[in-house]
Simulated assay, not measured.
Amino acid sequence: MADSFTLDTTPCGTVEVAYVVNGPIETNTYFVISGDEAVVIDPAWDGEELARSFAAAHPGVRIRAIVCTHGHADHVGGVAGLRKALPEIEYLLPAEDVATVETNIARQRTWGIETPDPGEPTRLVHEGDVITVGSARLQAIATPGHTPGGMVYFCAIDQGPIAFVGDTLFPGSHGRTDLAGGDEVAIIRSLRRLGQLLPSATSCLVGHGPSTTIERELATNPFMR
């Protein structure tokens, strides 16, 4: 069956991307800034401190939304604190990962990690949804496998395309599939689909560790061939 999803790769707007590595599993938390607006992607831990440090570094910029690539505890652990610090903020979670949050928080508890409950999302994300921030647009692409509802958020901007890939893609590899809801066949299908959909110049900002590009992964990642 043909892929009916259409990705808009026309450059639109500009962004600045800032990030911090935080939480017990060293998650990359990204701040996507455009004009006087920002969204935070995958706040891993201590959301109140994330809000304070961002405000100090970027006066006059309002964080309008939390956007999660998937429902694992190490990617939603800072949601509760951000919502406490910024009561008007939206919390966006992939629709298919609602059950994943509670399950994975319980799993991490067995590892000695207690994660604050993020609460109910204010918006559920489906493939094709667009999240605006200033002059830029984040387009949601469904990438099941690491979790049932995993999303990649693609942003075509004047500086060149970028994608926030969560734990779907790592340099030369992919996210683990041995946790509840993981599916090895699905994640490989998702990776190959990303290789077809995203421009080769796309910078891929990953959930843990260094970034990569689609061009590099098509050349070196065996799971994308």
Rank of each mutant, 00 (worst) to 15 (best):
Q139Y: 07
T10V: 10
R123N: 07
T27E: 11
G112Q: 09
V101G: 04
P121N: 07
L179W: 14
T100K: 04
I33P: 02
G78T: 05
T27G: 13
D167P: 03
A57Q: 15
G47R: 00
R193V: 02
A18C: 11
T147I: 03
S211V: 02
D183L: 08
T10G: 09
N22S: 15
E114V: 11
L194Q: 12
P94Y: 00
G134T: 05
L205S: 01
T103A: 15
Y19E: 14
G172Q: 09
R62E: 15
S200I: 07
D158E: 15
N104K: 04
T177W: 05
G77M: 06
S135A: 14
S4T: 14
I141H: 00
V61A: 14
I113G: 03
F154C: 05
R137G: 03
G13P: 09
V206E: 00
R137N: 11
L50W: 02
M151K: 11
M151N: 08
T177D: 02
A55I: 04
I157W: 04
A136G: 06
G77I: 03
V15N: 06
E16K: 13
R137V: 02
V185Y: 14
S173I: 03
I25N: 10
I25S: 13
A2E: 12
I214H: 01
G166H: 01
S53L: 10
H75C: 10
T132S: 13
C12W: 09
P94W: 00
V39L: 12
A65D: 01
F170T: 04
I89F: 01
H70Y: 14
A99Q: 12
E88V: 01
E120L: 11
G175R: 01
P11V: 04
Q159F: 05
G209V: 03
A85S: 08
S200D: 15
I89N: 01
G182H: 02
V61N: 11
P24L: 13
P116Q: 11
Q139N: 08
Y30I: 07
L93M: 07
G60Q: 11
H58E: 11
F164A: 07
I131M: 08
P24G: 09
Q139F: 03
L218I: 03
F31H: 08
G160Y: 09
D158V: 07
D36M: 07
G145Q: 00
A65I: 00
P144M: 09
R52T: 12
G128R: 01
H174E: 08
T147W: 00
G172S: 13
F5G: 03
G172C: 11
V32A: 06
E49T: 14
D74T: 14
H146V: 06
L93V: 00
L92Y: 02
I25G: 04
T100M: 14
T177Q: 09
P161G: 06
P43V: 08
C204G: 04
T103S: 15
G172V: 10
I157F: 06
A186F: 10
E96K: 13
I63V: 15
R107S: 10
S211R: 07
L7N: 09
T115R: 10
T220Y: 07
V20K: 14
A51T: 03
A56C: 11
A99T: 06
G145K: 00
N22G: 10
R176F: 09
R62V: 12
I162P: 02
C204K: 01
V17W: 05
P121G: 02
P171M: 11
R62Q: 14
E114L: 12
L198G: 01
S200T: 11
T110G: 12
R123M: 06
G160S: 10
G166L: 05
V79R: 01
